[in-house]
Simulated scan of single mutants.
Amino acid sequence: MRYLLTIFIFSLSLLWGSLLPSYESRLESVADGHGVIADSPNIIVGSSGVVVHTFSNGESSIIARAVVTEKNAGRATVRFEVFGALSQPALPIPGVLPKSGDKVILNYLYDRALIVVPNEDIYRQIVSSFPNIEFVNPDIAGAYLSSRSKPNPNRDDFREICALNAAGLIFIAMDGVAVFADCGSFDILRKFETNPVENYQVPFYSGIFGISPAWWKWDSAYITNYDRHYKFLLDIKD
């Protein structure tokens, strides 16, 4: 049985690269941790990116993360957050807040994605169906979780894996539904209806087996229901 509703998802897969291309705009105004930019059909609520500031010496640096929260009357509102890479001790935080004139780049790193699927057959179907997306090898994510004794990955685990692998999206396939979500906000950007899943590998398909929980970690445990676990992470209600 083919996992995906072939005509529907194949058509969308061919268009994915043009549906959410990188989009740049300048901040028109800034207030209370939010900014306003020109709207575009290339961005949707939940799209994320970065704020880039150019210093007086001509050098530029990412100073914040930006997430689209509203689109109205030709303008889009973005919420500012700490950019994940800047929270690492080895990278100094610039100490500059976003201001009018700074550049916002949205759909940032949306050409790379983590892939979370329940078996190898679905993995191969997804990779071949979305040629415009570079999927991070699931063995990398599996090895990360194994090294941290986390057979039940949460949002923060996936955010860290995305940051380490320069990925802006996460694709998650479940029984009856599959989604592309922003890897930072976990907002669902695209949702597809699918056929039933016949077999599962937990926490997801990869070449890394036997990821065990650690008894000294209260949040480390085996996944007992694959679909329920990922629907919870994505805030999908049955």
Rank of each mutant, 00 (worst) to 15 (best):
L4Q: 14
L4G: 07
T6A: 06
F8S: 05
I9C: 04
L14E: 15
L15A: 13
W16A: 14
L19D: 12
L20N: 11
Y23T: 03
E24T: 04
E28M: 15
H34S: 01
V36L: 10
D39G: 05
P41V: 14
I44Y: 09
I44L: 12
V45F: 06
V45L: 11
V45Q: 01
S47W: 10
G49M: 01
V51D: 04
T54N: 03
N57K: 05
N57Y: 08
N57D: 09
G58V: 07
E59T: 05
R65S: 11
V68F: 00
K71E: 10
N72L: 01
G74T: 11
V78G: 12
E81I: 08
L86D: 04
S87T: 15
P89N: 10
I93M: 11
L97K: 03
P98H: 02
K99F: 08
D102S: 02
L109Q: 03
Y110H: 01
Y110S: 03
A113H: 14
I115T: 14
I115K: 15
V116P: 05
V117H: 08
E120R: 15
E120W: 13
R124C: 05
S128F: 10
I133Y: 00
I133M: 08
V136E: 04
N137D: 14
S149L: 04
N152Y: 09
N154R: 04
R159E: 04
C162A: 02
L169W: 06
I170W: 02
A173W: 07
V177C: 09
D187Q: 11
L189V: 15
R190M: 15
R190A: 15
K191R: 13
F192G: 08
T194W: 13
N195T: 12
N195Q: 14
Y200V: 02
F204K: 04
Y205H: 12
S206N: 10
S206R: 09
G207Q: 13
I211V: 10
W216A: 01
S220K: 01
I223M: 06
Y226K: 06
D227Q: 07
D227W: 05
H229F: 12
F232N: 02
F232D: 13
D238H: 08
